[in-house]
Each structure stands twice: as structure tokens, then as C-alpha cells.
Amino acid sequence: MHGITSSRTVWYRRLSIGLALAVFFFALALPFALAVLWSLVDPAHPWAYPAVLPPVLSLRRWLEVWTTSALPQALYNSYMLAACVSIATLLLASSAAYALGRMEFVGKSIIHLLTLVPLIIPNFISAIFFSALLIELDVYSRFLGVLIGHTVSLLPYAIRLMTVSFAMVRQDLIDAARDLGASPLTVFRTAYLPVIKPGLLAALIIVFILSIEEFAISYIVGAPDFITVPTILYSYLGYNFIRPNAAAVSLILVVPNVVLMLIAERLLRSADPAIVTGKG
């Protein structure tokens, strides 16, 4: 009797895992495979009606997208920006995260909510009226505009992630280090750093990725000449729609971020996964 139930459970489990794999295949693997296929369509041989498969495959499209589109510039802009944004965000967030994670004070829960405000204002509203503000203030540098926009709208993530890290530091370790006469720097190095380091790096990476992926501010504030990878993709999906090129740019946008995200997840494994939420 008992044996029958458990073998049925195993069977159910296998079936459901199989089902999940099938859903995954159709929802993710297959569309990506098609994108890869489209990106390999040879530029000189169109894949047109009524052909079911592309006539000629080659890597020439990738070469061409790389040499003639603004993609190298967009990649440079995106990564440069993301580096500046993640450093700026971390610098601004760390002391606030310390206060939220390690101190008790009046109005803490309200402050906590306040830090989340950028998440509840729709991105395009921030983007449009921030650009109005920049016009009003005669700020012409698109890079500076996008940098400020990204930094502020990604601060909540950095504060949240680092607050958790700071809260995990054990007070007895700090006290022990102090009792042994360690200098503040040594206390930081021995009691804080080992605990907050994974969270710190994860915050760095997640803000980096979110900045690369951010579309609204880059598109509205950066227009017309500060282009990032998402804005170039948007143009390839809209006005300049050429399906094979869009496929190539899509893959370029996704692949490096997946790698970075996997690293971040590894770092965050101990922390609460629900923190990494809320991007559109």
C-alpha cells in the first residue's frame, strides 16, 4: 500500500517536471533558438515568403551589425554608464543602509517606505518630467542626465540589498573586536567586511544590470544622441525594424546580463531572493 502511493508520487513528480520542461522549452528555449536562427540569416539572401527556412546561413550579419550599427558605441555607453551608476549608487546607499540595518531610530518604517518611492512611480513619468526639469535647468549633457536618473531610480535596490547585509553583521563579533582593542578600521575589516561583502558585490552587479537594462530614462532623457543597448534595440524593433538585426542585438543585450545575474545570484544565495524584484 505504502509502496504504491510513493511510486505514484514519483510518477506524478516526473510528469510535472516533464511538463515544466516542456513549458520552459516553448516559452524560452525555442524563441531564443529562433532568434539565433534569424540572426544567422545571410544579409545577401533574404528569408522571404514562401521559404519556410532561411536559404543561406552565415555569421556575416553579426559582423555587419558590429561594424555599421551604432552598437559598439551603445555598448560602450551602456557599460560605462552602468559602471558609474553602480559606483555612485553604492556610495550614496552605504551609509543609509548602515543606518537602516544597524540602528534604531524614530520613523524607521516610514523612512524605509520612502526609499522605495522610485519603484512606484511609473518609469516613463520619471523619464519625461525629469527631462522637462533638465530643459528647465539648461542641462544639456545627456550622459549626466541619464546618470542622475539611473542613480536615483536604482538607489532603492542598493539600499535594500545592503540594509539586509548590514543587519546580518553580528553585534557580538563587533563587540569582541572592540574589546580586543581593534581600531575602527580593523573592526570594519574583521567584523563587517566578510559579512557585507557578498551583499555589496551583489548590489553592485544588480544595479549594474538594471542600469544596462533601463529603457525609459535612457530613451527619453538620452534622446537623440546618447544611445544605449535597449534604445538601439527599440529602434530596431520600431522605426528601423529589420528582424535579423533585431535578433542579433537582442542576443547581445541578454547574454552578458544572464552571466552577470548568475554571479549575483550565487553571491546572494544566503540573502532573501525577494529583494531582487520590481524591474519592468
Binding site: A70, A74, A223, P224, D225, I227, T231, I232, S235, Y239
Partner: peptide, 13 residues
């Protein structure tokens, strides 16, 4: 240098 902006955005700029 040819940026990727659209016509309207160029004119606005």
C-alpha cells in the same frame, strides 16, 4: 558621427 536618434528627437534637440 551619425547618432541613432529619430527625426522628432533630433529636431527637439
Amino acid at each position: 558621427t551619425i547618432p541613432d536618434g529619430d527625426g522628432k528627437a533630433n529636431m527637439d534637440k
